[in-house]
Structures are given as C-alpha cells and as structure tokens.
Amino acid sequence: MYKAELRKLYRTKRLALSEAEWQQRCTAIQERLLTFFNERFSPDTPLTLHTFLPIRRQREVDTYPIIAELRQRYSKLRVLISRSNPDGSMTHIVWSGHETLTENKWGIPEPAAIKLAEVNSTAIDIVLVPLLIFDKQGNRVGYGKGYYDRFLTTCRPDVLTIGLSLYEPVEAIFDKTSLDVPVYVCFTPFANWYFFNHL
C-alpha cells in the first residue's frame, strides 16, 4: 500500500481501539521492550536515549510508563525529548521528567521552558521512533512531516532505532524513498521484528 492510504487506514484503526485494548497493547509493547533492554544492557550501562512523547489524540504508544521503568532500572540513563523547529529540525533536550510540558500545534508534548540543556544528536545511543505502521523491511510511515527522517540522518551510524507499533507490519510500503530511514527493530504487542543482523 501507499503511505497516504496507510496513514488514513491506521489512524482510523488506532482511534477505533477501546481504551482497555489500547492500554493492553501499550503494556504488551512495554514488556517486550523492557525484556530487550534487560538482555542487551547491564543496569550500570551509560545510555543516552531519545524518546517521543505520545500525541494523546492520535492514540500513540504511551511511552511515559516505559521511560519511568527504564529510569528505575538503569542508573546511568539520560533521557532526551525534542522541540520541533520551524525549519524542520529538532532540538534535543535533557528531560528529567519534571519539566513543564506544553503541546505544540500537532499535539506533541514539548518542554515549555526555552533554556534547557541541549544535546547534539551524535551523543544519542537509542531512539524510540514513533510511527503509524511499518513494513516487513523496517520502513515506517509517520505523519508525513519528515522530522524523524531528517533527525535520524544526523545521528551516529550505530544508533539503535526502535519502532513501537500497535499493529503488525504490512507486507511493503510501495512509495518509500531514499530519504526514508528504516528502524533496526520494531516491537508490537504480539512480536519482535528485527531487521538488521547485528541485533
């Protein structure tokens, strides 16, 4: 299917989920992700993790409990969130979990304060990547603004990109381009999908 079709279809499917089913799927994704972290990293591993915060009205995967649990398990975890800039770039900011957040025009929670500690994207080890749906090659469909694709091209080549999806993948996204950055692994409520051998 094409991106426009997939966006329409999976926005509709997500909004059709009951609150209980959405919560169940988010919890299942969290458990899979935490198991992956436990198998891959020791509790004292220094990690800089960039996360998205969910757009509530879009029924995105709830990352708040994921981050809370990771903070408890990893003593040297540094968490970043971003502010979207008018030029299409993203500014990455250290997030302790206590800063005041406001929603931007797309409903994305962002830090309200202007002056917070900024971090270069090359310092990031792991990125939790938002998506509407993905395919069996690791390509993702987002909201079409390109913020994450541009952001990921500025990260180190070894950055670990993790997609979180409420649904299983489609066979293929027909109109992907060279500008689309695939994820290395994607967690759904039902399976772990790995796309690169080093994982």
Rank of each mutant, 00 (worst) to 15 (best):
P169M: 06
L179W: 09
S42A: 13
L53A: 01
E39I: 00
L80I: 02
W193D: 01
S82M: 10
E19D: 15
F187K: 03
L199E: 14
D175W: 10
Y74A: 07
Q72P: 00
L77K: 11
R32S: 11
G88C: 02
G163I: 02
R59Y: 11
Y194T: 09
L70M: 12
N120C: 08
Y194G: 11
D62C: 11
Y147H: 13
Y147G: 04
L9W: 01
Y74H: 15
L116Y: 12
W106T: 00
F41A: 09
E39S: 11
A20I: 03
Q58Y: 14
C26V: 05
H198K: 13
V183F: 05
F52A: 03
W106N: 10
L49I: 12
D135A: 05
I66T: 13
M90Q: 06
A117I: 12
P109M: 07
R71P: 01
L199Y: 08
I133Y: 04
T102S: 10
V141R: 03
P109A: 04
P111M: 05
P130F: 11
A191E: 14
V94D: 03
D175F: 04
L179H: 08
R156Y: 01
L116N: 11
G142E: 06
L17N: 03
I93R: 02
L131Y: 09
A191N: 13
P157I: 03
T63C: 08
T153A: 08
L199M: 14
T177M: 01
K105E: 06
E118K: 12
L160A: 03
V159A: 09
S89Q: 14
W95Q: 00
P86D: 07
G107N: 08
R7T: 02
S75I: 00
W95R: 00
E69S: 15
F195L: 09
A16P: 04
W106C: 01
S18L: 06
R78Y: 01
T27V: 10
T48F: 12
R25D: 00
S84L: 11
D135M: 06
W106A: 06
P182K: 11
V129R: 10
S82K: 04
